[in-house]
Structures are given as structure tokens and as C-alpha cells.
């Protein structure tokens, strides 16, 4: 009951929130919502101890796939988004064969290389990927009405509501997975793969499973993005974006489910309020780099460690 109340309050706050901010801030809210899914799905992969540099490209796979099936085949956009997720998951499954011959640092580099190859393919094949210019005029979400509210997807507010519902559903699934015996097995694979395997765990399958699920949700995030901004190209998913995702995850901390989400929210607010106001937008990569280094030095367990300190103190009282 108490939980239900809390969630009801959160929902109401999220419904009100976009009406309190400016148009450009509403747009930021949409990106923030999508980025939360990117970074939360990334955490699922890190549960098995592997860090990928290809996550954003995989997100792009979802964006391209959804853009193409809706544009070229006329598929209904919500279905296209699901196809985007499935395509990203499938590509991840194929990539798992070469990539999971490697571990740790080599996996990191391998995932980067795999991502760059995919980006090269997008650039190289103008049909169907549109080459370096990418895909333009991607179908927007079709407007619809749910009685009390009319979704008009030229308005960022409508797209914010729509993506918030999709992302909330995805986060709920990610959460259920993490708290399940499957999630425990991911932890086991991470902390002591020898003992996990001696307990009958097929390491390769579980590493692949985490990679495929994480990629599927990244693909959904990519598709959400594509149908919002209407145009994507290979540079929308380059390594600079990957660095942002890594920064959100590391600054927030990957020890808890909410850590990376917290990192994403705090840094986005910092970015929008502080940097934009000060006119320092252009220096964003530099400042992100600085924040990353500072947080590794002075806050190795991320923002979540600060939250934990407070909640623990409350418990102790």
C-alpha cells in the first residue's frame, strides 16, 4: 500500500513535470528518459562483469532497424520499436560468438571494434542505410487519443509521456530480471566464474543472455530516439556518446540498479542547467572527462554510495 502510494505520487509528478518547464527543457526530458533506458540496460551487462564499448552502436542498430521497417515496409511505429529491440538483440547474439571468446579488457576492445565495423557498414551502404547522411524523415509516432488525453507527437510533452511509459515498463522488466535467480547467476558469473561453472552454470550462455537482453533494451531506446528526432546517421551513435553513457554509469555507480540512472539524471541536470546557462555547452566532452576522472578519484563507488550512506544512517536510528 505504501509502495503503491509512492509510485502514484511519482507518476503524478512525472505527469506534471513537463508542464512546468520550457519547450527546450521538455525536449531534454525526452532525451533523459531515453538515456535512462540506455544506461539501465548497460548495467545489466555489467552484472556479468563485462563492459562493452559497443552499447551505443547496438542502440543505433535498434534505431536503424525501426526507422527502416516503418519507412520502407510501412510497419506501425510501435511495432517498429519492438522490431528495433529484437534486431539489436539478434545482432548482439551474432556478435556474442566472436566477442565471448574474449574477456575483460579484450572484450572491451573487441566490442569497440565490432561497433566501429557496424558504423562503417552504415556509412558504406547507402542502400538501405543512407550512407554518412543517414536516414531522414523517419515516421513519427502516429497521434492517438486515450479519451482524457490527446497524444500529439509534434509536442515533446506527448512524446515524453509515451517514452516514459515504455521506459518504465522496460525498467520494470530489467528490475525483475536482476532480482530473479537469473540475476543472481549473473552475479555469480561475475564474481567467481570458476565456482559458478562448477555449480553447473554455463558461463557462455549466461554472458550471452545478459548481452542479448541489454542490447535488446538498448535497441528499444534507439528506436524511441529515432522516431522522436526523425533523422539518424552513423555519428548519432559514435564513441563520444558511448563516453557519456560510461560517465553516467561510473559517476552514478554500477553497484545498484538505481546508480546509473541517478548518474544520468544528475549529469543531465548539470549539463542543462549549469553548462547551458554558462554557455559552456561546447566544452561538454571536456567537462565530462573531468567529472569522470574526479569521480573515479574521490567517489569510486559513485553517487549511489552517498545515497546508501544516508539510507543506512536512517536505518541505524
Amino acid at each position: 500500500m505504501r509502495n503503491f502510494l509512492i509510485w502514484a505520487v511519482v507518476a503524478v509528478a512525472l505527469i506534471i513535470l513537463p508542464n512546468l518547464v520550457s519547450f527546450s527543457q521538455q525536449e531534454v526530458l525526452v532525451f533523459l528518459t531515453i538515456n535512462i533506458l540506455v544506461v539501465a540496460s548497460y548495467r545489466l551487462l555489467t552484472l556479468t562483469g563485462e563492459w562493452s564499448l559497443g552499447h551505443v552502436v547496438i542502440m543505433g542498430v535498434g534505431a536503424y532497424a525501426s526507422a527502416l521497417v516503418t519507412k520502407e515496409l510501412g510497419l506501425w511505429v510501435p511495432l517498429g520499436i519492438l522490431v528495433g529491440g529484437a534486431s539489436a538483440a539478434f545482432i548482439a547474439f551474432l556478435l556474442s560468438y566472436p566477442l565471448f571468446r574474449m574477456k575483460g579488457f579484450y572484450f572491451l576492445i573487441g566490442s569497440f571494434a565490432a561497433g566501429e565495423i557496424i558504423r562503417l557498414l552504415w556509412k558504406r551502404f547507402r542502400d538501405p542505410f543512407g550512407g554518412a547522411k543517414g536516414i531522414k524523415g523517419i515516421d513519427p509516432m502516429p497521434d492517438f487519443s486515450i479519451g482524457i488525453y490527446q497524444f500529439d507527437f509534434f509536442e515533446p510533452v506527448s512524446y515524453f509521456y509515451f517514452s516514459a511509459v515504455v521506459v518504465a515498463l522496460c525498467l520494470w522488466i530489467l528490475w525483475r530480471i536482476e532480482k530473479s535467480p537469473v540475476g543472481l547467476t549473473f552475479h555469480a558469473v561475475h564474481w567467481q566464474d570458476k565456482l559458478a561453472q562448477a555449480s553447473g552454470v554455463n558461463l557462455r550462455s549466461y554472458r550471452t543472455l545478459a548481452f542479448v537482453i541489454a542490447s535488446g533494451f538498448a535497441g528499444i531506446a534507439g528506436a524511441l530516439l529515432a522516431h522522436y528526432i526523425g533523422t539518424i546517421n552513423p555519428n548519432s551513435f559514435d564513441v563520444e556518446v558511448m563516453v557519456f553513457v560510461l560517465t553516467w554509469a561510473i559517476v552514478g555507480g554500477t553497484g545498484t540498479f538505481y546508480g546509473p540512472i541517478l548518474g544520468c539524471i544528475v549529469l543531465t541536470i548539470l549539463n542543462e542547467i549549469v553548462l547551458r546557462e554558462l554557455g559552456l555547452e561546447q566544452t561538454r566532452p571536456l567537462i565530462y572527462g573531468l567529472i569522470l576522472i574526479l569521480s573515479i578519484l574521490f567517489m569510486p563507488n559513485g553517487l549511489e554510495s552517498i545515497v546508501q550512506k544516508f539510507t543506512r544512517r536512517k536505518e541505524a536510528k
Binding site: 522488466i173 525483475r176 530480471i177 530473479s180 535467480p181 537469473v182 543472481l184 547467476t185 552475479h187 555469480a188 564474481w191 567467481q192 570458476k194 565456482l195 559458478a196 555449480s199 553447473g200 552454470v201 543472455l209 537482453i213
Partner: peptide, 30 residues
């Protein structure tokens, strides 16, 4: 050789992996 970062109970739960195979769809749907 243990899962040092996990609780004692979770360690033992990993040991039950073969008997009670985790099923991801059942887990999501409860």
C-alpha cells in the same frame, strides 16, 4: 573459492542452480 561479495544464502542458492534452473520468462512474469 566463494562468491565473497554475495551473502551466505546467495552462495548456497547458486549451488541449487542445476536442480532449479532459472527461467527468465517465468521470473519476469512472477
Amino acid at each position: 573459492t566463494l562468491f565473497g561479495e554475495l551473502s551466505v544464502l546467495d552462495n548456497a542458492l547458486v549451488g541449487t542452480h542445476m536442480t532449479f534452473r532459472p527461467n527468465i520468462f517465468a521470473a519476469i512474469l512472477g
